[in-house]
Structures are given as structure tokens and as C-alpha cells.
């Protein structure tokens, strides 16, 4: 953050020849989303040309399934990031919501009620995070790290340490269903993505999140209800994590307390690679989807090419670092001539 501010003041001091140079640079300074989209497309093309298994209906459907749940979690995590916060608890919330929903179902609670209660749990967790951040002033990083521990513990306690088995048929078949040749999971992701995209790009609430993340003081002075925005962002994050948890439960046909370990990191990585700034104020649902798609493609490609799983992890890590570096370079260039 210090570096960020330093950039700003630096920018102010060297303003003179700004206007022309800014315009010139913007021409070739491509936004990171475009870069990542290009990378993903390139990977798809290379895989399609070099393997006979990649561009098959079956494999594409597999990728769509694989990317869906990851994307949903990443969409949610994007919102706290937009307001310059973070939510590290989503992976554990995925597990907790899965075992809670599965336990309710196996205890005979009707499906709609079990889903509703699980979503309420998401609202409660999001509110708790937001309350801690907004009212108690605990840094989001700390409180959601605590959540990462506590909700995972909760998942173990609820499930007695083992997987919850015996879901109603309707639920365990849901994740396997396809409509118009597209997996139900992907439809779910599409609907959630569209709703969140709509909120972010078309409503005041979405715009205030961007404003708040970009310049908290400016948002406050503009009379924006900061409290409402903070609650909104964290509730979106937890509720989407609960939806993802239930979808994962449906896909695995068990509620597993070990589900979703480290998913928060994948989700954050997808958002960041998709153009979100960890300093807030910037990011999009579409970009996040592209980020998640890139990671899912890499995982799938590594499997199809038989690349060692560990190399795949290394490659993913290098990729995150590279994309963020390029993005920073781009931004520094921009603010340096501002």
C-alpha cells in the first residue's frame, strides 16, 4: 500500500507532459484480462492441435464442469477484493456448507428448506465477517484467516470428522445433469455470473464497491453508505461459497469436511489473474471467469499430456507471478505519467 501511495505522489510531481504521453501509452498497454484471455485461447489452440483428446465433446464438457465450481467461488471472492478487502474463509465455507446441507438432508429435512438454511448460513457468515471488518476494525485478512480455521473446524464437528453420505437422489443427480448438452453446473455458474456481473456493472451498489476500493475517502465524502457496501461484499462472498459447497456436495454425492482445502487461494488467483487488483477498485466477473478457465485448462492439459502434477503446481505459481508482474508494470507506467 505504501508503494501504491508513493506512486500516486510521484505521479503528481511529474505531471507536465502528461496528456500526450498517456494517450500514446494506452495504445499498447494492453489490460491484463486481454493477455490472460489470449493465453487461454493459445493454450486451447495448442492443445487442440497437439492432442486428439482435448477438443472432444467429452473433454470440453469435463472442463466446463471443472471450471464451474471454481468460478463460482472466485466470483464471490472478487467482491471483498474489489473493496480492498479479502476473504480467506471461502474454502472452509465450501466444506461447512456441504456438510451442513448434507446433514440436514440425511436428517430428512426437505430439499428446498435444506438449501435455504444453508444459504442463510452463508448470509450469517458473511455478516459476521463484515461486522468484524467494519465495526470491530479487524483487518479482513486476519478475521477471514480465523474463519478459514474455525469454519473448517465447524465442518469437522458437524460431520463428526467423516463424510456425510446418503443424499436424496434428486440432489446427487443434479450435478450430473445436462441441459442442451451443457452441464447443469455450468448453467449454475452462468446464472450466478450474470447476476453478479449485472450487480457490479449496472447498479449503484456495484459502482460504490469499485469507488470504495479505489478511494475509500472519496467514497465516504460522496456520502456512500460504506457499512452497507462492506456487508454486501462479504455476504456475496460467503453465499456464493455456500452455493459452490452445495454444488460440490451434489457432484461428489457426499458432504465432505475435507472439501475445498486451499480453494480460497485458487479463487483469489483466478480473480487476480483475471484483472482484479488486490488494492481494490478494479476487477470484473468476466475476467475472473477467464482466470478460472485458464487454471482449469492448465490442470486438464497437464493431465492429458501426462505432465507431472508437481510441475503443474509450479507452472500455475509462475503464471500468477508473471501476470501480476505484467499488470503492475502496466499500472506503474500508467500512474507514472499521470
Amino acid at each position: 500500500m505504501a508503494a501504491h501511495d508513493a506512486n500516486l505522489s510521484l505521479g503528481r510531481r511529474m505531471k507536465a507532459p502528461a496528456a500526450t504521453r498517456t494517450r500514446h501509452l494506452r495504445k499498447w498497454g494492453l489490460p491484463v484480462e486481454t493477455l490472460v484471455l489470449g493465453l487461454t485461447l493459445a493454450l486451447w489452440i495448442v492443445m487442440a492441435l497437439t492432442t486428439s483428446t482435448f477438443l472432444t465433446a467429452n473433454n470440453v464438457v469435463n472442463i466446463l464442469r471443472q471450471v464451474s465450481i471454481d468460478s463460482i467461488i472466485a466470483f464471490g471472492v472478487l467482491f471483498p477484493i474489489l473493496i480492498r478487502g479479502i476473504d480467506l474463509s471461502v474454502g472452509s465455507v465450501v466444506a461447512l456448507s456441504g456438510v451442513v446441507c448434507a446433514s440436514l438432508l440425511t436428517a430428512g429435512v426437505p430439499i428446498p428448506l435444506a438449501i435455504g438454511l444453508t444459504l442463510l448460513l452463508g448470509v450469517a457468515i458473511g455478516s459476521l465477517n463484515a461486522f468484524s471488518v467494519y465495526r470491530l476494525g479487524i483487518p479482513a485478512f486476519i478475521i477471514t484467516l480465523a474463519g478459514l480455521q474455525a469454519f473448517r473446524g465447524g465442518a469437522f464437528l458437524v460431520s463428526d470428522g467423516t463424510s456425510v453420505f446418503g443424499l436424496p437422489k434428486a440432489l446427487s443427480t443434479f450435478a450430473r445433469a445436462e441441459w442442451l448438452g451443457i452441464p447443469s453446473l455450468f448453467w449454475s455458474m452462468l446464472i450466478i455470473g450474470l447476476v453478479l456481473h449485472f450487480i457490479l456493472s449496472r447498479t449503484r451498489t456495484g459502482r460504490y464497491m469499485l469507488a470504495m476500493g479505489s478511494n475509500h475517502e472519496s467514497a465516504r465524502r460522496a456520502g456512500i453508505n460504506i457499512k452497507r457496501i462492506v456487508f454486501f461484499a462479504y455476504i456475496i462472498s460467503s453465499v456464493t461459497a455456500c452455493i459452490a459447497g452445495m454444488l460440490l456436495m451434489s457432484r461428489m454425492s457426499i458432504g465432505s469436511p475435507t472439501a475445498g482445502v486451499a480453494y480460497e487461494l485458487n479463487a483469489i488467483a483466478a480473480a487476480v489473474v483475471g484483472g482484479a487488483s488486490l488494492f481494490g477498485g478494479r476487477g470484473s466477473v468476466l475476467g475472473t471467469f477467464i482466470g478460472a478457465l485458464l487454471f482449469a485448462t492448465i490442470a486438464n492439459a497437464a493431465n492429458l499430456l501426462g505432465i507431472d502434477s508437481f510441475w503443474q503446481m509450479v507452472a500455475t505459481g509462475v503464471l500468477i507471478a508473471a501476470v501480476v508482474y505484467v499488470d503492475n508494470l502496466h499500472k506503474r507506467r500508467q500512474s507514472g505519467v499521470k
Binding site: 459502482r207 467514497a219 478494479r282
Partner: peptide
């Protein structure tokens, strides 16, 4: 108009001018 201007950098000029009072 404060010394620090208080503009949201990531938002557009229009979004800043209308911030908090957007027509819907």
C-alpha cells in the same frame, strides 16, 4: 475540492462526477 482531490482512480470521469448521486 480537497487538496488530495478525493477521486476514485479506477472509475471513469463520469462515474466520479456522479459518485453518490447517480441517475437511475
Amino acid at each position: 475540492v480537497y487538496q488530495d482531490l478525493a477521486l476514485a482512480d479506477e472509475l471513469s470521469v463520469g462515474a466520479n462526477i456522479f459518485l453518490g448521486r447517480e441517475p437511475t
